[in-house]
Simulated scan of single mutants.
Amino acid sequence: MTVTTRAAAVQLSVGHAPADAIALALSLIERAADEGAGLVVLPEIFAAPFVQPEPDPDYFAYAEKLDGPSNAMAAEVSKRRGITVVSSIFEEREVAGVYANTACTFSNGELVQVYRKSHLPFSNGFPEKFYFRPGDEAPSAVDTTAGRVGTIICYERHFPELGRAVALDGGTVLAVPVACASAPMKDVFQLELRAQAVANGLYVVCANRSGLEVAKDYFGTSAVYGPSGEILAQVDDGDGIAIADIDGDLVARTRRTRPFLRDRRPELYTSLAR
């Protein structure tokens, strides 16, 4: 299905209580929908502070079930506005003591995909392995009101295989909720996202937070990237939305003129699975 719509990356400033962060996110989703967005992506674990360099058992208080307040808001506005919303939560799983870093895609109010972050850092001030159990499923694409969308989460942008998995599953948009705060990595951050777009011939919608949160200074730079790696829209600092048109036909044309998916030789890559 070819879809032409608009995509928006929501950027949130830090320092809000969860209920206030959810209300702020809702107001920005509404603004994006008013401007024609059919797809809205929220930052990684958008309603809570993100993990700090030292493991903190008290952080588990921010966990919520899949039907908790963050996703309840995303589902409601998705249905009411007839759009797709990619939410992100600190998920409390069914088994006591098990948690995940989870992205949920709502299309017209329906939960159409749950993706649990499968690659977790324990470095550079992000001890995520202390809090989250890694997901066991590869990223994939799912049909939504905004076309075929797949999600990877933050640290996973370092792994080219994950965006490629979404593209091979027919994805035309890669949603990337992030919590990125390492200033020396800012240029690499954008390089990686642009590379994902070019290598896979798809749109990339990346949503970050902004501002100083305890020991971490989040650099914002939420953006929508086109399938040639161009920056179509960007928010530098503070609260806001980066919004741009996405065109399924352009994805198809790009994949014909740069046929990287066609010219793959998977039989030569078996060593990559070691």
Rank of each mutant, 00 (worst) to 15 (best):
I241Y: 04
F90D: 01
A138Y: 10
D187S: 15
A215W: 11
T221G: 00
G171C: 03
R116S: 13
E91K: 10
F189P: 01
V178T: 15
F46R: 01
L12K: 01
H16R: 15
V178I: 05
L272A: 10
A195E: 15
T257A: 12
E128R: 02
D247E: 11
G201L: 06
Y155K: 04
A199P: 01
A223W: 04
T145H: 00
P127S: 11
L42Y: 02
P266G: 07
A8L: 05
A252P: 00
G163N: 06
E44T: 10
L268M: 12
N124K: 15
P55N: 12
R194N: 09
V176N: 05
L261F: 07
Y155T: 05
V214Y: 10
G238A: 08
N124R: 15
P184H: 12
M73L: 12
F106D: 02
A233P: 07
R262V: 13
A273D: 13
P49K: 02
E161F: 08
G36P: 07
E267G: 06
E35Y: 08
N101V: 01
Y203N: 06
K117S: 09
P134D: 11
V235A: 04
G109Q: 07
A199Q: 15
I89E: 03
A7I: 05
V3W: 00
R264V: 01
E35I: 01
S87N: 11
V173Q: 01
S70E: 11
Q11Y: 09
Y269M: 13
P69F: 03
D58S: 15
V204R: 02
K65A: 13
D247C: 08
P177V: 05
V40Q: 03
A96Y: 11
